[in-house]
Design a protein around this nucleic acid. Structure first.
Lengths: 337, 337
DNA sequence: AACGGCTACGTAACCGGTTACATGGCGCGG
DNA sequence: CCGCGCCATGTAACCGGTTACGTAGCCGTT
């Protein structure tokens, strides 16, 4: 029952463990007869090498740790899918760990990765640079995703400002007069960048309009609540710029409940372009989520084994992703999909 | 740079590695002064224990392997989310591995898990029982998800027949006359069960109608193609029973393109109830995906440490999940959502 | 015949933890 | 004052692999 070890195989094949190891790893200098005997013993015993032990002696685990704040919604699952896509052909595995908001627990999560993985992808938009730097285990190659740039660590980021600017410019160009912003959680880098970009874009495109920003938390319900509150207060607005798609969906829901026509009376835009956005006809700043995931892995793998860097990505700064605005029904595009 | 080991800490604190280990694991019988010295040395060196080495000597990795065929779509991501939910509080991690269709590669994937994880969750609806049994490493606790029951292994399954029966009965009850089925990939257990259940349900509810089944592969495009083909051939039908939600979405798309009204002219039902289904108003057999994921983990954890089984689930056969039909717009429910 | 070099293989150290067992020092009862 | 037991701690084996290094045997040269 207890699975057999390399020594069992060695005994069965009447050779030393070294020879078994050589056969397993296709090393040269093994006599064909010996190789055959070892192979036979392996399949007779049903031997499967113990990856953990191998990792320890090679100091390579063939695994990549992924630390992220949540697995909710398509946003994260798309990114993880992208990572998986890139990691499998390279012979690596993904070790998932989702961390809680608390900085101490986050540090905990990152530390338990040491000795388990060869590198780390960290998505921690809610941590400060200091907290992060304190939490990261030393000597572990790390790539940050949508996280405050910290020291000289590699990171892949989305140009939040560009996405919001494009949305606001589009609203101005299509004749809207009073956009409001539903912001993401306080303390989240992306949320903050988007909020600031909204304020700046308002000054550029709507210098005379008040800058209205209402709080949200990136979840659908907060979008619904935000719009419901605006409606209840009687605040005038004819466009909603949500800081992410999920809140935009919530906003659409609330607008429907309030009997406001989209896009005739109110335009809605999101951010991320999760798959659902296409189905629901949401205008949004497209972020190549799957691609971001695989790109992060490629970057990390290059860090891990510097030699075989597979032809640097063409672009000038491949680490800054510029979202592209996809115009759909929710902001007035003719029926598509 | 190179991170320090327990021996470095021992040297710095002027104690033996045993004492350091005792401090790390909160063992009794360590003098408070010693404990303090060790703690100081640990933080001075920034020492983080090497989980791999620990695993090897304890023969416990605190990780669960998840082997699945694909990460595409919400189906899998919801399940994985459920797993993560259950695994984190137990102090375990998830090691993802998605396997390719080929049985040999699948076996490979499962084998490389040995020594990396304490248990395995296998979702392999496309493998035969034999192939599976041959591939599974011996002595590794395993729970199968939507997979042919093999030997006495634990497994969690969906009652495919019940879901399809409910859908067909609903269509009959609401006056449809000629349903067609879009089947899933050949060789997939769930797909086969659903197809057979459709044929059986047709005999029960529509004894005079022909049983029309068209091929699909669980992806959206195949649903679109299937309906497009039916329309092109002029085959009469007033209901589409898709073997999963994604194909149902594709069918909706194709129906819209063909100018057929849903649900007036054609009703559509899916299977799974992925989150998207609610947004698009799809009638579907609800499968508690997140719950299935966590339940699989609970089951596995109980297998791993038999002692502390956390109160068996109330139900009589908690391992067979009965889907419940959720009726929405696509089959004639009044406007919801 | 002596020697060098090559091939095939075994021995044992090592990766970084855990822990059974041994040990030394101390307090305490008799 | 002796001996017992307990507490705190150290030594070294072990988990299951990999591999540097050593060696035996064989061949070909000179």
């Amino acid at each position: 029952m207890a699975s057999s070890t390399i020594r069992d195989v060695a005994r069965a094949a009447d050779v030393s463990v070294a020879s078994v190891s050589r056969v397993l790893n296709d090393h040269a200098n093994v006599h064909p007869d010996t190789r055959e005997r070892v192979r036979a013993a392996i399949s007779a015993l049903g031997y499967v090498p113990h990856a953990g032990a191998r990792s320890l002696s090679l100091a390579r685990t063939q695994a990549i740790g992924v630390v992220l704040p949540d697995l909710h919604g398509e946003f994260f699952s798309e990114i993880v899918r992208g990572m998986d896509r890139a990691v499998t052909p390279a012979g690596y595995h993904l070790l998932l760990s989702n961390m809680h908001a608390d900085a101490e627990l986050a540090a905990q999560a990152m530390r338990t990765m040491r000795g388990r993985v060869d590198g780390l992808i960290v998505m921690a938009p809610h941590l400060t640079a200091d907290a992060l730097e304190a939490a990261l285990p030393r000597g572990l190659p790390t790539v940050m995703l949508n996280t405050v740039p910290s020291g000289d660590r590699a990171g892949i980021r989305v140009d939040n400002a560009a996405g919001i600017r494009a949305a606001v410019a589009h609203l101005a160009a299509t004749g809207r007069r009073a956009p409001v912003h539903i912001a993401g959680p306080v303390g989240n880098v992306d949320a903050v960048a988007r909020r600031d970009a909204f304020a700046a874009a308002m000054r550029d495109h709507f210098p005379d309009a008040p800058v209205r920003i209402v709080a949200g938390d990136f979840f659908e319900e907060s979008g619904t609540a935000a719009v419901a509150a605006l409606v209840a207060e009687g605040t005038p607005f004819d466009a909603v710029v949500a800081a992410n798609d999920m809140m935009a969906f919530g906003a659409l829901q609330a607008l429907r409940d309030a009997g406001r026509q989209v896009p005739e009376q109110v335009a809605v835009t999101g951010f991320d372009d999760v798959p659902l956005a296409r189905y629901l006809g949401l205008t949004t700043a497209h972020v190549p989520l799957v691609d971001m995931g695989s790109r992060a892995i490629d970057r990390l793998l290059a860090l891990i084994s510097p030699g075989l860097s597979s032809a640097t990505h063409g672009a000038r700064d491949p680490d800054l992703i510029i979202p592209e605005l996809i115009v759909r029904r929710s902001s007035g595009a003719p029926e598509t999909l």
